[in-house]
Design a binder for these strands. Structure first.
Lengths: 361, 361
DNA sequence: AAACGCCTTGAAATCGTTTTCGTGGACGCC
DNA sequence: GGCGTCCACGAAAACGATTTCAAGGCGTTT
């Protein structure tokens, strides 16, 4: 470390956090406290606190003195002392199975956006979860004393959820359940899948395959239901051989379409479990020399940002991810401030027709 | 809210956080404290603390009594009190321009993974940043008293960085700078671009276009430099008309390739600023009826997870994003524990040849 | 047997805020 | 002019942990 003072501070014992102290703001090595501000402004700590929080009127002269002292000392309130006293930590916990999926990304973006105005910050715990692991993670967050929790695709059952919500406000996605300290948001997966399937039917497809999502996943089951419903409504007989088990990930979509192809069953369109699954399926078709949409029409679900830029751009069912994130954050803030969260429903799912679907040849 | 007690708790004043109290663990409505544990176990608070932290030996009998009390009361240490006393908050701040990009996603995943074992949790602040906004955000994190900071693509200049690092350990990506409380990680962008370009040259391409990233972005500039270096090394004259300004986002890649196409300049291969830019470019080519790789070879940079599943899968330069995240976390933990972070270099960039490149026709 | 040291333990101080409680003064009212 | 109210403000008590300090018990050494 050339030209950087007398060697290794910072190694050794836990560092005593020296503050930046150029332009002579803090001669001492440690952060200014409210008491020091009070001393500098010749008032009592209580007064400083009151000024900071606007808890009570104080004389203008003192207020000015205090503000001057704050600026001079570069004072910043210590959030831990604050939290200890007030019982709030100003953090909200976010639980998600896959922090690197674009799905979570979209929601998280909305979440951070909506949280930006407030004084709360998100703490993210990731990693794959089954019901049990998820409960454990909530426990972790609880012992960190987060002020609220958002769970992105919730696997807890309602009972557990209610239980946790007695301790701390919770907002979850993928469930429809409201009550004391709980807010949840659920999209109409069945309707989305129905819309998508109907779109394919209207184009003239009848042999429509469905790559179904994880068997234990409610969203997946609902989408499959929507698919069947649309077929039934048009009087198209469901060929069970056209429904193949897949998952929400691209490799699973690839594997699924390969199995379907290998089965020899004829089909002219595919409804994938979600966009990522569709990506995988697309590749599988491509490998077989089948073109989208000329040979096979392909529909996804989610409308990930990337789906506008696949070749061709993917027809899909739009989930307003950012909006979900924003609403989650807002509802949680409502809960935290003791306001009733809004009762209006989620924005509707919406079919986005792009270029991966066409009339069958 | 059917069957859930006498109406609206939780609305009204800030809720007093009632703890879950079924199975009769906490008759009172509030969380157990260390003092209560001490009382229940008939020892002093100090002793409980010592047992919890292993600070000193205590008699086995007492230790057992304390553990029993802890279990019975469902005691969980209050992190705010702990933080106040110890001066540590057990959180690390993460700064990133776009929390929903797969790029950040990959890094963040590695980060959370490596943090999972420790007692630290990440707090994410997102949103687009220029240098100034980034400094402000670091300030925000500082006033939240995070114990360390990770900046994902750092725009601060070295001076500022050093300054901040005097207050709190920092790990940044996209910079090569180490010193007191600073650790940084930088990939050899120039080398990566050079590898990619050389690959195209070796396939026989000579008219290779480059969609250059944001003009103010060092990574972008370095990649452009690597591109030029590779051409020079092979004695291929650089046609400035083949270098067009783009960005790191898909729409920008699309716009750039359209401009290039409109210019009428002939080219048989494209080196994109990064993978997302390549996606956009791919779409632009597709729209013009140009096929990848038959008509135009295409190379990206980053190796996002999605790039394995584009059609065709994208040849690209691999950045080990998760590994970067993991190392960032580990180095920060090292810094925090007063251990010197590892001095070994980053893993090398690596060309991943898939199916978007081929010999020119 | 006295002196010394180590080990376990409890009492009390401490971290930096917020909040209650009390007090002195200014003001309004009869 | 006396008395009650109200207001601004300071002293001090929380909040829940850690840590220092001191003390007592016990074993060892000379």
């Amino acid at each position: 470390m050339p030209g950087d003072g007398p060697g290794s501070r910072r190694h050794g014992a836990p560092p005593p956090l020296p503050r930046a102290e150029r332009d002579g703001r803090r001669p001492s090595g440690t952060a200014a406290t409210l008491v020091e501000v009070a001393r500098a402004a010749r008032v009592s700590p209580s007064t400083v606190s009151r000024i900071l929080n606007g808890t009570a009127r104080v004389a203008d002269a003192k207020a000015r003195a205090v503000h001057a002292a704050i600026a001079r000392l570069g004072y910043r309130p210590n959030p831990m002392a604050h939290g200890l006293r007030k019982g709030r930590r100003m953090t909200i916990g976010v639980l998600a199975p896959e922090v690197d999926s674009p799905f979570f990304g979209g929601i998280f973006r909305g979440l951070t956006e909506a949280l930006a105005g407030s004084d709360y910050v998100p703490v993210v715990l990731g990693g794959p979860t089954d019901r049990e692991a998820e409960a454990r993670r909530v426990g972790d967050l609880l012992s960190r004393r987060v002020d609220g929790i958002v769970i992105v695709t919730c696997r807890l059952d309602d009972e557990e959820l209610r239980d946790f919500a007695a301790t701390v406000p919770m907002v979850v996605s993928g469930r429809s359940l409201r009550g004391n300290g709980i807010f949840s948001m659920k999209l109409d997966n069945a309707l989305g899948a129905e819309l998508a399937t109907r779109h394919l039917l209207e184009l003239g497809h009848t042999r429509i395959a469905h790559l179904q999502g994880p068997p234990d996943h409610r969203d997946a089951a609902e989408r499959a239901e929507g698919y069947r419903r649309a077929l039934r409504a048009r009087g198209v007989k469901l060929d069970p051989g056209l429904v193949v088990q897949s998952g929400f990930l691209a490799p699973e979509g690839l594997a699924a379409i390969e199995r379907l192809l290998a089965s020899g069953r004829r089909f002219t369109a595919v409804l994938a479990a979600n966009d990522e699954c569709a990506y995988g399926a697309h590749l599988g078709l491509h490998r077989r020399g089948l073109r989208v949409p000329e040979d096979v029409s392909l529909v996804g679900f989610d409308d990930l940002p990337g789906s506008r830029f696949t070749t061709p751009p993917l027809t899909t069912v739009r989930q307003p991810l950012e909006e979900i994130g924003r609403r989650a954050a807002r509802s949680l803030l409502d809960l935290l401030h003791g306001r009733p969260p809004p009762t209006d429903d989620m924005p509707e799912v919406e079919l986005v027709v792009r270029e991966s679907t066409a009339r069958p040849r």
